[in-house]
Simulated scan of single mutants.
Amino acid sequence: MKLIEPSIIEEYRLKAEEIRKNGRPKNWLMGMLFIALWIALAVWAGFVILKAWR
């Protein structure tokens, strides 16, 4: 922390406080995409395991 200038630290501290007040931006579409990807991966893995087990 000593290598970073205090002005830089203060600038980003103010930005962080602004984000904290306003809330983080939400991207629901990307969230749904990741959830769908994980579900598809789990279903695929289930089929692979089921096929190997039979």
Rank of each mutant, 00 (worst) to 15 (best):
K15S: 11
E17L: 05
R20G: 03
M32I: 14
A16C: 07
I35E: 05
K26A: 14
L29H: 00
E11C: 10
E5L: 06
M1D: 12
E11R: 13
N22Y: 04
I19P: 05
K21C: 09
L29S: 10
I39L: 07
W44I: 10
K2H: 13
L3P: 11
K26T: 08
E18H: 00
P25F: 10
I49W: 12
M1W: 13
A40S: 06
E18D: 09
M1N: 04
G46Y: 10
E10G: 13
W44M: 07
L33D: 10
E5V: 03
A42G: 08
I19F: 09
A40L: 02
V43E: 03
W28E: 10
Y12D: 02
I49N: 12
W28Y: 02
E10Q: 15
P6C: 05
M30K: 15
L41E: 00
K15P: 03
M30P: 10
I9T: 03
A16Q: 00
N22H: 00
E11N: 11
A16D: 05
I39C: 01
L50A: 01
M32D: 04
A40Q: 02
A45R: 05
L41N: 11
K26E: 10
I4M: 03
G31V: 14
L3T: 11
G46Q: 02
M30A: 06
W44N: 07
L14P: 00
R20C: 05
I19Y: 08
Y12Q: 05
G31W: 05
I49H: 11
N22C: 01
I39R: 06
M30R: 01
V48G: 08
V48E: 05
I19C: 11
L14R: 07
Y12E: 08
F47V: 02
L3H: 08
M1A: 04
I9L: 01
M30G: 07
K26M: 02
F34Q: 08
A42Y: 07
P25V: 14
I39K: 00
M1L: 14
E11I: 04
G31F: 03
W28K: 06
I9G: 00
M32C: 14
A40P: 06
K15A: 10
I49F: 15
R54W: 10
I19A: 04
E18M: 07
L37Y: 11
N27E: 04
K2N: 07
N27L: 08
N27F: 01
A42T: 02
V43H: 03
R13D: 13
K15H: 14
A36H: 13
R13E: 10
E17A: 11
L29Q: 02
N22A: 01
K26D: 11
I35F: 05
L50C: 07
W53N: 14
I9F: 05
K2E: 15
I49P: 09
A40C: 08
L37A: 14
I35W: 00
L3A: 14
E17Q: 13
P6I: 01
A16S: 09
L37D: 08
K21A: 12
G31R: 03
G46N: 12
M32F: 15
K26V: 14
V48F: 09
G46A: 15
L14T: 07
S7F: 14
F34E: 09
K51F: 08
N22T: 02
P25I: 13
M30C: 07
I19R: 15
E5N: 09
M30H: 09
R54V: 08
P6Y: 00
P6N: 12
I49K: 13
W28I: 12
I8A: 00
A40D: 03
K26P: 11
V48T: 06
L3G: 06
I9Y: 01
E18N: 02
N22K: 04
